[in-house]
Amino acid sequence: MSKTRRAFYFLTGLIMVPLGILFILEPAEGYEYVLLLLVLALLGYAVNHLIYYFLLARFKTGGIEVLFKGLIFLDAGLFALDLNDVPKAYGMLYMIGIMSLSGLIDLLQGNQARILQSGHWKYQMGYGAGKLFFGLSCLFFLDSARILTLVFGLGVLNMAVNRISIAFRKTDMVYVK
């Protein structure tokens, strides 16, 4: 991983720590900022993929998958953008869904890392399980806004700590010469 990328992970992790705390202490404000972060992440990922497609991947055999991936994330990002106008409950559900899905993906990637005998598979699986746990736990507390924001805020802090740790971690890889 390049130094720039490590710095990016570290800084975004640092930004997420106060956001998580803010979410727990002042849910209304915290919600707005977390939603903004989510929108920026999704739209940024989508735009990145779309630019990559039009610049390079459209000449690649099977490159259309990059276009569709970009479109799906664009859809998700635009939907998140629209959430500001709807009741917060929907926005919360959307964010809970993203957190849970992201946790599931991390769990599967952790399992893949376990097969590849990477040194970080336990951490990765644990982190994914944690995110999934926080995400699914929120569904049990939909009636109690206070507990819901507390659990979700802890989930955000969990993600923040993970990003900071990634910045200092050595990258494992499978390489075939």
Partner: peptide, 17 residues
């Protein structure tokens, strides 16, 4: 054929979404 296959997958994913 490749476009058709990927479009089919995309329709399913968009449907779930």
């Amino acid at each position: 054929s490749n476009y058709l296959g990927y479009s089919g997958r995309a329709v399913i994913i968009f449907g779930l979404w």
